[in-house]
Measured scan of single mutants.
Amino acid sequence: EKTLKIVADSEEEAEALAKELAEKYNLEVTIERNPEEEGKYVITIKIKP
């Protein structure tokens, strides 16, 4: 299993990107607040072998 993390500037941007990735590529995608940067969100994508 591989994990890729993407940082987005807004929750709306994160949700839109996560939804597109999940639907288009059938990936497991989660969104959470970035504890290191206020106002940023981390999109985590898990790629199963």
Rank of each mutant, 00 (worst) to 15 (best):
A18M: 05
K2F: 02
A8C: 15
K48R: 14
E32G: 05
T3M: 12
Y25R: 02
K5Y: 13
E23G: 04
R33K: 14
V7S: 12
E12D: 08
G39A: 02
E11C: 08
E37W: 14
E37K: 09
D9R: 07
K48M: 12
P49M: 09
V7K: 13
T3N: 08
E37M: 14
E13G: 03
E28L: 09
E36A: 11
P35Q: 10
N26P: 03
I43K: 00
P35D: 11
N26Y: 08
L21E: 00
I43P: 00
K5N: 07
Y41H: 04
N26S: 07
E23A: 08
E1A: 08
L21F: 09
A16Q: 09
A16G: 06
L27T: 15
E38C: 08
P35A: 12
T44C: 07
E23P: 02
E13L: 11
Y41A: 02
P49Y: 09
A22K: 14
I6Q: 02
L4N: 05
E12C: 13
P49D: 12
N26K: 08
N34H: 15
P35C: 07
D9F: 11
E23Y: 09
A8P: 00
I47N: 05
Y25V: 03
E11W: 15
N34T: 06
E38S: 05
I45A: 08
K48Y: 14
A16Y: 10
K46V: 13
E1H: 08
T3W: 14
Y41V: 06
A22L: 10
D9K: 07
L17F: 09
A22Q: 14
E12A: 11
L17S: 01
A18N: 01
V29D: 00
L21P: 00
K2C: 09
L17R: 05
E36T: 15
G39P: 06
I45K: 00
D9G: 12
E36K: 12
Y25S: 03
P35N: 10
D9Q: 11
E38Q: 06
G39V: 02
K46I: 15
K5P: 03
K48N: 13
Y41C: 03
K46Q: 12
A18K: 05
A8K: 03
V7A: 09
A18E: 02
A22S: 13
I47V: 13
A18L: 07
K5M: 12
E13M: 09
I47A: 07
Y25I: 02
V7F: 15
N34L: 15
I43M: 02
K5T: 15
K40E: 06
E37S: 09
E12T: 06
I47S: 10
T30H: 09
T3C: 13
P49E: 08
K2P: 10
I45F: 02
V42L: 11
L27Q: 09
I45M: 02
E11V: 13
Y25W: 06
V7Y: 15
T3I: 13
T30R: 07
K40A: 07
E20K: 14
E15I: 15
I31S: 01
S10F: 02
G39Q: 03
R33I: 11
T30G: 03
N34A: 12
S10C: 03
D9P: 03
L17T: 03
V29E: 00
E32F: 04
E36P: 03
Y25P: 04
L27I: 11
A18R: 09
L4Y: 11
P35G: 09
I47C: 11
Y41W: 15
G39M: 03
S10T: 11
P35E: 11
R33C: 05
V42G: 01
E13S: 07
E1Y: 01
K48V: 11
I45Y: 01
T30W: 10
T3H: 09
I45C: 05
A22D: 02
K2L: 12
N34R: 07
K46R: 09
E32Y: 04
P35Y: 12
E23I: 07
K5R: 13
K24V: 04
T30L: 07
K2W: 01
A16H: 08
A16V: 10
S10A: 01
K46Y: 07
L21M: 07
K5L: 12
R33G: 05
K24C: 12
I43Q: 00
I45S: 01
E12M: 07
